[in-house]
Amino acid sequence: MADHPLLELRGVSKRFGAVQALSKVDFETRAGEVMALVGDNGAGKSTLIKGIAGIYPFDEGEIYFDGNKVTIHGPRDAAALGIEVVYQDLALADNLDVVANMFLGREKKKSFWRLDEASMEKECVATLDSLSVTTLRSVRLPVASLSGGQRQAIAVAKAVMRNSRLVILDEPTAALGVAQTRQVLDLVRRLADKGLGVILISHNLHDIFEVADRITVLRLGQKVAQFVASETTQQEVVHAITAGTLSHVPGMVVEE
């Protein structure tokens, strides 16, 4: 494991009008680790993720990627760094098959403006294999015919295939059954084992304790705790989520 974090945020803040969504948050995640991001509704998880993904810039604070200071002005910048977000609502086209979805928007082409289906299918299979997604009957089935877990796996694999280095998963198990949740959690673990950085947002502490290495807790826009998963308990995390000590009163100007 590298001595510097893959992604490090120092003192990032974000304000929407009168609402201080994030104030002076420090956050880091390492390559090869699953960092869980938890917090109650409105704690600032989504704001933090969207800032990293370049949906909107942070008002202040610094971002370091691979030890280098970077600026992320848009989703393109984030993608160029190798940051991929798997959104809750999946963003798959149901009527297209697995291969078409995996390569949507970045199709491989041959001469005469033709799609290079064979090499796309091969790379798709290779990627799914590397993630040990083996429950698919065929990569030529429309995504609509897949189970929720399989669809989530495709969405994750799509992010992985883009040579990503940091994958952000927004509630990947929210709509899944027990067996499918299992599949997706296994997949999350494998991503980290492959050496990618993984940020996992979830409300389900049980899931988090199964796969996460470390846990960052946000409350009212501030980071109130950071735990090593193996050295803490669910109760401790719940306590931090609901009653973690705030370093300053929300909305007040912070004096350094």
Binding site: L90, A91, A93, D94, N95, G105, W113, R114
Partner: peptide
């Protein structure tokens, strides 16, 4: 069926938001 353009037409018809996020 054989060109990126056709693929995009199906994608937009299937899930416009997914197509947009994919950069189409």
């Amino acid at each position: 069926t054989r060109t990126p353009f056709g693929r995009y037409v199906y994608a937009v018809g299937g899930n416009k938001e997914a197509a947009r996020r994919a950069g189409i």
